[in-house]
C-alpha cells in the first residue's frame, strides 16, 4: 500500500467525517440561533389539518393551538420520500432529482449496512452468503450499494443532460451546478466502478470500514477502492459548504418559515426575545430612517427629514 492510498483510506476519511459533522452542526446551530423573524406563513399549513387556517374563525386567537401531527408527517413524508413539489410542478426535473435522491437515501442505508457488517466482522461473525443475519446483511449491502450507484448515476446523468441541453435550465445553471453534478458523478461513478471491477460483494470495502472502526490500516487491494473512498471523502468535505446542505436547511424553510404559525403570547420567551431585538441600533441610512435610532425609537418616530423635504 503506498502512503497516498494509506492517507486516502485512513486519515482523510476521519478528517472528512469530522469536518462534515462539525460544519453541519455549526451551520444548523447558526440557523437555529438567528433572531426570530416576523410571521411569513404560506398556506396550506399542514399541521392545521382539514380545518385549515384559524384565521377563518371569529376570535381565532381564543381557539386552542391546532396541531395535527398526522397531517404534518404525511406532508413531510411525501416531500422527503417523493419530492412532491417537484413532482407536481416540474416533472422534468423531478425524474432526475428523484433518482438522485433515491441514490442518496439508499446510499445512506448502504453505508449503515457496511458499518453493521464491519462491526459483525470485528465481533468475529463472518459476513457472507452462508446464512443467518450475516447473510441478510451480505445481500442487503450488495443490493443497496448497487441500487444507490445506479439510481445516483442515472439521476446525475439526467440532470446533467437537462443542464446541458435544456435551454431554460442552461440559462440558470452556474458553474457550481455543473461542478456539483460532476462531483456526484465521481462519487457514484467510482463506487459503481469499484463494485463492478474490484469488489462485487463489498467485502474489500467492508474490510476498510472495519479498519476505520478499529483504527487499523488495511492494505488497499485495488486502487479503485482508494478512488472510491477518496471521492466519498471529498464529497463529505464539500457538502456542508455547498448549497446541497439543503438536506438540513429544508427543515427550517418548512417548519420555521412557511409553517411557523406560532402566535406571540404575553410573557412568552418569544415576547422577551423580540423586546430585546427592539433595542438593536439601526444602521440604515435613507432619509426617513431616524439616524442611529434603535428599532423601538424608529417605530415611535416619524420621518422628520422626509417631512421637512415635502
Amino acid at each position: 500500500m503506498n502512503s497516498l492510498e494509506g492517507f486516502v483510506t485512513g486519515p482523510m476519511v476521519y478528517l472528512a467525517i469530522a469536518v462534515f459533522t462539525v460544519v453541519t452542526a455549526y451551520k444548523v446551530h447558526a440557523i437555529m440561533n438567528m433572531p426570530r423573524h416576523l410571521r411569513w406563513d404560506l398556506y396550506p399549513v399542514p399541521h392545521q389539518g382539514p380545518e385549515g387556517s384559524k384565521y377563518q374563525k371569529v376570535d381565532f386567537y381564543k381557539l386552542p393551538k391546532q396541531f395535527s401531527l398526522t397531517h404534518e408527517l404525511k406532508e413531510m413524508g411525501e416531500e422527503i420520500f417523493f419530492i412532491k413539489r417537484a413532482f407536481l410542478n416540474n416533472r422534468k426535473i423531478w425524474r432526475g432529482s428523484y433518482l438522485l435522491h433515491l441514490g442518496f437515501y439508499i446510499g445512506t442505508a448502504w453505508l449503515a449496512l457496511l458499518v453493521a457488517g464491519a462491526v459483525m466482522e470485528i465481533a468475529g461473525v463472518r459476513v457472507s452468503a452462508a446464512g443467518g443475519l450475516a447473510s441478510l446483511i451480505y445481500y442487503l449491502t450488495i443490493a443497496a450499494g448497487v441500487a444507490s450507484f445506479v439510481f445516483g448515476l442515472a439521476g446525475t446523468l439526467w440532470l446533467f443532460h437537462l443542464r446541458v441541453h435544456d435551454e431554460e435550465m442552461q440559462a440558470v445553471s452556474d458553474a457550481v451546478s455543473y461542478m456539483n453534478l460532476g462531483l456526484m458523478l465521481l462519487l457514484f461513478g467510482t463506487g459503481f466502478a469499484a463494485w463492478l471491477f474490484a469488489d462485487p460483494t463489498f467485502a474489500l470495502l467492508r474490510a476498510q470500514v472495519a479498519g476505520l472502526l478499529t483504527f487499523t490500516a488495511v492494505p488497499v487491494q485495488d486502487s479503485l477502492i482508494a478512488w472510491q473512498m477518496f471521492w466519498f471523502s471529498v464529497f463529505l468535505l464539500y457538502l456542508p459548504f455547498s448549497r446541497m446542505m439543503h438536506f438540513a436547511a429544508k427543515y427550517f424553510f418548512y417548519h420555521n418559515i412557511m409553517w411557523d404559525d406560532e402566535p406571540l403570547k404575553a410573557g412568552s420567551d418569544m415576547e422577551k426575545d423580540i423586546t430585546g431585538y427592539l433595542s438593536y441600533s439601526v444602521e440604515w441610512s435613507a432619509r426617513h430612517i431616524k439616524h442611529r435610532g434603535n428599532w423601538a425609537e424608529q417605530v415611535a418616530s416619524r420621518p422628520e427629514r422626509e417631512v421637512d423635504k415635502k
Binding site: 440557523i31 438567528m34 433572531p35 426570530r36 423573524h37 416576523l38 411569513w40 413539489r85 417537484a86 410542478n89 416540474n90 426535473i93 432529482s97 431554460e168 435550465m169 440558470v172 445553471s173 452556474d174 451546478s177 448549497r243 446542505m245 439543503h246 436547511a249 429544508k250 427550517f252 424553510f253 420555521n256 418559515i257 431585538y277 438593536y280 441600533s281 439601526v282 444602521e283 440604515w284 428599532w295
Partner: peptide, 30 residues
C-alpha cells in the same frame, strides 16, 4: 446591512436561507 441582525432581524433567517439554498431547478418559473 441586509445580512446583519441589527438591521434585519425581522427577516434575517428567511433571507439567509433563501439566499443560500436555491438549487436552480426552475420549478418556480412556471
Amino acid at each position: 446591512k441586509l445580512f446583519k441582525k441589527e438591521n434585519n432581524w425581522a427577516f434575517l433567517q428567511p433571507t439567509v436561507l433563501s439566499t443560500e439554498y436555491c438549487m436552480q431547478c426552475n420549478t418556480c418559473n412556471e
